[in-house]
Computed example of a mutant assay.
Amino acid sequence: MRGVAILLVATFCLVTGCNYLAASPKAGDRIVPERSTLRVGVGNRIDTAPLRIAVADGSFTRAGLHIELVPLKSDADALRGLASGNVDVAFATDVAFFTAAASGTALQFQAEAYTSAPFTMALVTLPDSPYTKLTAKKSPRIAVDELNGLSVLAVRSMFAAAGGDPDRIRFVQYPFEGMQAALRDGSVDAALMIEWFITQAQQSLGARILADSSHGAMMNLPMTGYASSGLFAQVNPRTLALFRQVLTAGQQRASDPTVIRRALPQLAGIDDATADQVALGEYPTSLSGTRLQRVADLMHSSGMLADRLDVQSLLPKPVP
């Protein structure tokens, strides 16, 4: 019977690709972690809101795991933190994690954080800008937060879908906080912004959406996630399984957008009016290799990855 059960599980994984958050111990199971404290590097406040809320309301503590949140400013910070051991789990864009994995960095994905939805990531211009159509400029200057990151992937995909030449785009790096100024002084023709910066630009500048990223290959695309080093995952499988279990419950609560909107003023330092207006994406409650493979394949087809990356190899195995 044991052999039959193993065969059935293997067949199921082959057919479905296995969702590994679901493969973690069930919510009612008691997991005894190898360690009592987990240092988690966090960035974008909207993407990481379910995690932050679960830490603040004591969900992790009640489960037997103390979470120490370590602020991160960029994807590079996240990868450095994992490499140095300053953080045990780090938040970053999926693009950053896949780029690192393709270059030989041993990583294990722990959870998906955030998936795009309409107007969660968009190209923004000034209200009186002559740049009114995506392909109107053959070589536009576009502000992005990272020169080889998710923003570049999104813009290139948008231009290709619109019939433009992505190779002619001139990317200019700015922090999201500096993009409004870059638009005002004419340093760039448009800026690839995420929420809540889009809503703030609309409120303060009357900014106009030139193009929404959530179309075609970018529709409902996984944007960000959490990963650990391969070595840490090997030594601490139960600790990470417990992290995934509690985070999954937090992501499930976030399916009600009012939960996130109520928390954003305190989490992100924005006012209630802005929190009510921001476009929200989705918070996945499973870790899907099939879903994440879309990102890696898009990176490969756009030239960001030289070879196709097997995302399934980066996912955790079920904990015994």
Rank of each mutant, 00 (worst) to 15 (best):
P130R: 08
T99F: 00
R238S: 10
A217C: 09
G225C: 04
I67N: 04
L107A: 06
P320K: 03
G43P: 04
I169N: 03
F232R: 01
V278C: 01
Q251C: 06
P71Q: 00
G178K: 06
M223C: 03
T93M: 02
D271F: 10
A279Y: 00
T239P: 15
Q293E: 11
G64M: 06
D256L: 04
C13L: 15
K73Y: 15
G85I: 13
A101L: 08
Y114V: 02
L183S: 08
P118H: 00
G85M: 13
S301K: 15
F119M: 00
V259A: 10
A22D: 14
Y174I: 08
F109P: 00
T16D: 08
L287V: 11
G41L: 05
S204I: 06
A181L: 15
D75S: 14
G250D: 12
T258S: 15
M193V: 04
I53V: 14
A96C: 09
A90R: 01
V278Y: 01
L280I: 01
A5Y: 14
L292N: 11
G225Q: 02
L192G: 00
K137P: 02
G85N: 13
R52D: 09
Q110K: 13
K137H: 09
G28T: 14
G104I: 05
E146R: 14
R2Q: 11
D297T: 15
R80D: 09
P257T: 00
L210N: 04
E146K: 13
Q202Y: 05
D189P: 09
